[in-house]
Structure formats: C-alpha cells, structure tokens
Amino acid sequence: KNSTLWKYFAISDMLTNEIYIGNMVQGKYGSVSYKTKQNKPRPQSEWYRVEGTHEAIIDRPLWNRVQSMIAERAKPFDCGTVGLFARKARCANCGYTMRSTKNRGRHYLQCSNRHVAKDACIGSFISVEKLERMVIDELNRLAAAYLDKDELERSIEFCENLQGQKKQLVDTLSAYEKRIAEYTKGLRDLYMDKVKGLLNDSDFSALSKEFSSEKSRLERVLLDGQRQLAELEDRIAVGDNRKALVERYINLEHLTREIVEILIDHITVGKRISGTKDVPIEIHWNF
C-alpha cells in the first residue's frame, strides 16, 4: 500500500492495455457533439484496433487467461486470498454463482439464491474440502482413461471438437453483428423520422433509448464472444496440449487457485441426494 514504485491503477492498466500484446488501440474516447469539446468513453466495438504494430512482451495465451480472470470478478477473502472455487461453482438448479461461507474453521459453498424467495431455488450446498476431493478424483479418472487412448485418436478427436466449437461460435458472432447493424440502422431511421416530423420527441426518446440499450448489450456479448474466439484460435494454433496438462496434474494431493484457473471453466453443484452424503456435480474443463 505504501509503495511508491507500483500503484494499483498502474498494475490494473497493464493487465488490460493491449499495447503489451503488440496491438495499437485508439478511439477509446469520442466527442459527444461537434459543438462541444466534452468526451465520453466509447464502447469497445467502436475502438480502432490494429494488431501486430510492434513486438509483444506478453504472450497471447497468458493475456487471455488474465482477461478471463478479470471477467470473473472473484472477490478475495479478508486475508487477501481468493477462494479455491470462487466464481467457478454454480448452482445446478438455478445457475446462480455459489457463495462462500465459513463455519467452525471449514469453508463451504452454498447457493444464496434460495434465501431470496421460497420458490427461487431448492438450494445447493457442499464443503470446499469435499468438492476439492471430487475434482481431484475425477481428474485422476480422466487421466487414466485419456492417457490410454491412441495418440492419433486423441489428435483427431481434439481437432474435430475445437473446429466444431469455432464454427458454431463464428456463426453466433455473425448473427450478433447482423443484429447490431440492424439496431444501428434503426437508430438512424428513427432520427430521420424525427427530423421529418413523423415522430415526436417523446416517442423518439423512448424508442432510441430502447434501441441504444439493446445495441450496447449486444456489443458487450459480441466482445465476450470475440475473446472466446481468440482463445479457441490460440488453442488450435498451439495444438493438443491436453496430454501435457493431464500428465502435469495427475496424482495431486491438493488443488491451488492457479490449477483451478488453468483446468476448470466452471462446476455445477446439485442438491445433496436425500438419504445419502452424495452431492452431484458436473465439471466443465478447459481442455
């Protein structure tokens, strides 16, 4: 806190400034009107981005990992550490992100959405220790099955899987871009109708606000999809690294937050099966 070398805002800027991966980005701010010098932030979809203008000092896979971690917005405990499954565990019943609680020195994850209303969710609950053990057991099971596979079979399966994901994502992004263009045209048409007197000020204000809100939402979704596409292309370019990942993380005794970030996209946790101690989970891996 008292350091004069590195301030929080400086580190924050370095983690999100694309100049460190070789990109030049301009147009982050624009004037509100030609009549005033006042500037306001522009949505990222309107920035001018030129890739590869200079040598990168941060490699793209590491950059993408950092952006994913920032997007998770995982909050640390009072001691400053981030929970092992923070923002990674989701309720299987309602999709709500599970929150951390502590009782008698043990950490638990629970769906707090069940406290909103009686019919909001039936609730999910599991101890962090139990979930960690289940993840390690599943990782070891996958490792045993995967490493027994023929190398060629693994490679073909990997390529078909990722290329299929890429095609689906590209189609989805194209649909979003088309809808954004439609809203942009709609806003322009609304303005022309107002100028021609076909639309009064009240209706123009209400409709343009609705159009702009939906356009901004789609732009945020598009940006997130473009980030996912970049990550997919990086994985395709690097090749099948799952064998190395699996071999690196077999026979673990404990997980760390870094391992969870590398291996796991998210985990869905169900309600404990009545009459047993079993809690159904579903792990969505990053590989």
Rank of each mutant, 00 (worst) to 15 (best):
K1V: 08
A10D: 13
S12D: 15
D13P: 00
L15F: 06
T16M: 08
E18R: 15
E18H: 10
M24K: 14
Q26G: 11
K28P: 01
G30C: 03
S31H: 09
S33L: 03
Y34C: 07
Y34E: 08
K35W: 04
Q38I: 11
Q38W: 05
N39F: 10
K40E: 08
K40Y: 08
P43D: 07
S45I: 11
Y48D: 13
R49E: 07
R49Q: 10
E51V: 07
E51Q: 13
G52E: 09
A56N: 04
I57Q: 12
L62W: 08
W63H: 06
Q67T: 09
S68Y: 09
I70F: 06
E72M: 14
K75Q: 14
P76A: 13
P76C: 11
D78Q: 12
C79G: 07
G83I: 04
G83A: 15
R87K: 15
R87G: 01
K88C: 07
R90V: 12
C91V: 10
T97R: 03
T97L: 09
S100I: 14
S100N: 12
T101L: 15
N103M: 09
Y108N: 06
Y108E: 03
S112P: 00
V116W: 02
A117F: 05
D119I: 03
A120D: 03
A120W: 00
A120L: 01
I122C: 05
F125W: 10
E129Q: 06
K130S: 11
K130Q: 11
R133C: 05
M134K: 13
I136F: 07
I136N: 02
E138V: 02
L142S: 04
A143G: 14
L147G: 10
L147W: 03
D148V: 07
L152E: 12
S155C: 04
I156Q: 11
E157S: 13
F158H: 07
C159K: 12
L162F: 08
G164T: 08
Q168H: 09
D171S: 13
T172C: 07
I180P: 01
E182K: 07
K196F: 06
N200C: 13
D201V: 11
A206F: 09
L218R: 02
R220D: 11
R220M: 10
V221E: 09
L223F: 09
D224W: 02
G225Q: 02
Q226Y: 03
R227Y: 00
E231T: 04
E231Y: 00
R235T: 12
A237T: 12
A237P: 02
G239E: 06
R242N: 14
V246K: 00
E247D: 15
R248D: 04
I250P: 00
L255H: 01
E258G: 14
E261C: 09
T268Q: 15
V269H: 00
G270K: 06
I273M: 14
G275I: 09
K277F: 04
V279Q: 03
P280G: 05
I281G: 00
I281P: 00
H284P: 01
W285D: 00
N286W: 02
F287A: 02
